Structures are given as C-alpha cells and as structure tokens.
Simulated assay, not measured.
Amino acid sequence: MTPCPDTYLPWFLLTELPGLSPRVVKKLLHHFKTPEAVLAASKTQLSSVPDISSRVIKTILEHKTFESDAQKRLTRAQDSGYRVVVLTEPDYPALLKEIPDPPALLFYDGRFDISAPCISIVGSRNATRYGMDTAYYLAHRLTAFGFTIVSGMALGIDTAAHKGALDNDTGQTLAILGSGLDYIYPRHNRPLYCRIRKQGAVISEFPPDTAPLPGNFPRRNRIIAGLSCGTVVVEAAQKSGSLITARLAGEYNREVFAVPGSIKSSKSRGTHHLIKQGARLIENEMDIIDELSQFVHAENNRPSYEPTKKLPTMDKIQTMVYKNLDLYPEHIDHITASCGLTSAQVSAALLDLELSGLIVRHPGNKFSILEE
C-alpha cells in the first residue's frame, strides 16, 4: 500500500528547497535528526549547524512558500503508482546511506531486494559489439551468484548489462535515471523500462516530472556507485561519465574493475587508464567474484554451467578463416590478407560459418566470432 503523501512531504520539501544539496541535507538531518525538526528550527538553531550558509538558512525559514507546490508534485508522483523510500527507513539501501551525499529521498517504480549485493556495470553509449557482448555476459553470469546489476539505462553498455541480468530468470537489475520517472530516457528504451520494473526497479532521486538535464547525470552516477560494492567499467573514452562513476566508487572505498580492450579502440582508453591507476583487470566474472567473495551468499556458490559446445566440423579453408577471426570485427580484406587465400575462398567460408552460427556479420563487411 502506498503511504500517505503527508508522511513524506517534509522530506520532499527539504530536498526541493533551492540551494540545499544532498550533502547539506545530510548534515542538517544529522544535526536535527528529522526533516520536520529542520523545517521547524529557528534562525538561531540553524546558525548553530557548522558550515551552513546564511542563504540556506534564509531558504529554510521561508520553506512555507514552497510547500503547496511540493505537496502537489508529491501527490502526483504517488498517484502515478511510484513508491518512495527515505533515508531513515529500513528499506533504504545500506551502502548508499554510507556515501557523503546520499539522496534523502528516492522514487522508484518496481521492486528491489535491498539484501542482495549490487554490482554496477557501466560504459560507453556508442559501444562496440565486443563491449556490449561483454557487458551482457558479465551481467548474466553475476546474477547467477545473487548479485543485482545496477546501471543507468543508457544506450550501449548500460542497456546490454540490464538485458544480461533480465535474461536470467532469477536476475534482478536496477536502473538509475538522470531524469524523473515520467521521462523514459532515452525513449528507445521504453520496452526495457517495462521489463526492468517487473524484474527489479527504475529509481530516481528527482521528482517524476524532472527532464533529463545534463547536470542531473553526474548526480545519477554517484547513486550508481553508492549502491554497489563494486563497479565494472566495460568501455569508456578518456572523458566519460563512466569514469566519473569509477572515480566515485574509488572515493567510496568500493572495488573498481575494468575490462581491457583493443589498443586500436578509443573506447578502450578510459578502461586502460583505470587499469594503470590500479583498477582490477578482469577477464571473466570469476575475477569479480573472487574479489567480492564476502558478498556471495552460501546458497549462491559457483553455479554449474553447461559445458562449452563443440564446434561443428569445418573443412580446411573454413578452419583457416575461423582461426583468423576474433571478438573484434575484422574487415573481409584484412581476413583475406591474413589467411593467404583468395577473396572467393574467404567469402564462401565466411558465408558458411555465418550460416552455421559461428560468426557474426557486422556493418561495413566486417566479421567476428560469436562468443559462447
């Protein structure tokens, strides 16, 4: 049952007051214990809080000016079926509570088990096939150990990670938005939103009618890092929001993992930089599990996967072509040069391998092997 909006109005009002950052709100709550006490405090009482500016004090003293609008927005949110959890409730995620500036209030659509450990998987929006396959693979495997996959529901790596978790029937995933829940961003991911809310939750600290403004996304990233005992960066350029998430994870004393990529790819520069800075290089899910073994429940011991399928019989030319392919897409001209075969032989072999489901054709006449 959705609680009465009045229960959360002081919390919502406190977070909506202009000039009150999450860090300031946490400091005020630490001093006064409840949002009601903060809003009822006198100028003298507010002035006794260390490092609280006169502008913040003035805004709090004038909070009734904002109360009517806050009440309407909160009521609309709960009429839409969204749930609310606040910092002092037992359903508030414990790890997120530990960061310096946790959101005092979260809106969410769906359900989530706060006892399950979380791992965030983030990376480039304009990801390579290798990056998306890797994000999907890691998410799918990690959910088998009882981990919840956290990401930002962006295109590329985020989407692949969410789908990897969802395709495990018992997997749970959380999508953290840089907008309100009324704004499904990007719009292309509306079907994904619907899947996530049935097998996890879509979460935001912003009121539901908040548009996806650029300044919201760094704030979103701290929640992704704060919820998680570890953050995995799959692909990232040198200047990337994913690197912000990784930096925050490090500041929160959480584990940071990075997937190595091709030295030819600009999308690997960010992950390689993280590895140089001390992030754990990972080759598979067990590198993560070994590092975070304390979070793996006893009943979620290493799952038994089906043995690797044997490759179908290939003739000599097909074998030569297959051995010259990798997870990174290669142009047919490069494959031909590497094999020392004719263009006709390589083209025929590639077609046969594709029809056998062993390789994938990419735009631009490029090919790669299909990861198991």
Rank of each mutant, 00 (worst) to 15 (best):
M1F: 10
T2D: 05
C4I: 14
Y8V: 10
W11D: 15
E16L: 15
L17D: 04
P18H: 09
S21H: 13
V25G: 07
V25H: 00
K27W: 01
K27S: 05
L28Y: 03
H30T: 11
T34N: 09
P35Y: 00
E36F: 01
E36K: 12
E36N: 14
V38A: 04
L39W: 07
L39H: 11
S42T: 15
I52F: 04
S53C: 04
K58T: 10
K58N: 01
E62P: 00
T65R: 10
F66H: 15
A70M: 06
A77H: 04
D79S: 08
D79I: 13
D79Y: 03
V84P: 01
V85I: 14
V86R: 02
Y92W: 06
Y92S: 02
P93L: 09
L95P: 02
L96T: 04
I99L: 09
D101V: 05
P103Y: 01
A104S: 12
Y108C: 04
F112S: 07
S120W: 09
V122P: 02
V122L: 06
G123D: 11
R125D: 06
R125E: 09
N126A: 14
N126Q: 08
A127M: 05
Y130N: 12
A135M: 12
H140F: 13
R141F: 11
A144V: 00
F145I: 06
I149M: 10
V150F: 11
S151T: 14
A154R: 00
D158A: 11
T159L: 01
A165Y: 02
L166S: 10
G171Y: 01
L181G: 03
D182V: 08
H188E: 13
H188S: 13
Y193I: 04
Y193D: 03
Q199F: 04
G200H: 13
F206M: 03
F206Q: 02
A211K: 11
P212A: 07
N216P: 07
N221F: 14
N221C: 15
R222A: 11
A225W: 01
L227Y: 09
G230F: 07
V232Y: 01
V233K: 01
V234D: 02
E235L: 05
E235N: 12
A236S: 13
L248T: 00
L248E: 00
R254S: 11
R254Y: 08
R254V: 07
S262T: 06
I263W: 05
K267W: 02
S268G: 05
R269H: 07
T271G: 01
H273F: 07
I275T: 04
A279W: 08
N284T: 07
E291T: 15
F295Y: 15
V296M: 10
Y305W: 14
P307N: 09
M314K: 10
I317F: 05
Q318E: 15
M320C: 12
K323F: 14
E330I: 13
I332Q: 03
T336K: 11
A337Y: 08
Q345W: 00
Q345Y: 02
V346G: 08
V346E: 11
L351W: 03
L355M: 14
G357A: 08
V360I: 15
R361D: 04
H362I: 10
L370D: 01
